[in-house]
Amino acid sequence: MKNVVKELRSSQGLSQATLAISVGVSRQTINSIESGRYLPSLPLAIALARFFGATVEEVFDVDA
């Protein structure tokens, strides 16, 4: 499943570490999500979407 976490994070000038702290996970987990190696749980997906002021479907492409 593709996502735009990296694009959203970069557009706000945030580091992976900063985003990780904000949503309560490790920097490695953010890196894994961005590269598509790890599919986050629903609570984490919602937390990421809320952080960026978007919906889960805007952050994660369920059809890709």
Binding site: G24, V25, S26, Q28, T29, Y38, P40, S41, L44
Partner: peptide
Amino acid sequence: SETVAGLLDRRDERI
């Protein structure tokens, strides 16, 4: 190590 830290505090869902 973030992995070891995650194993200790259990906060990271991926770990």
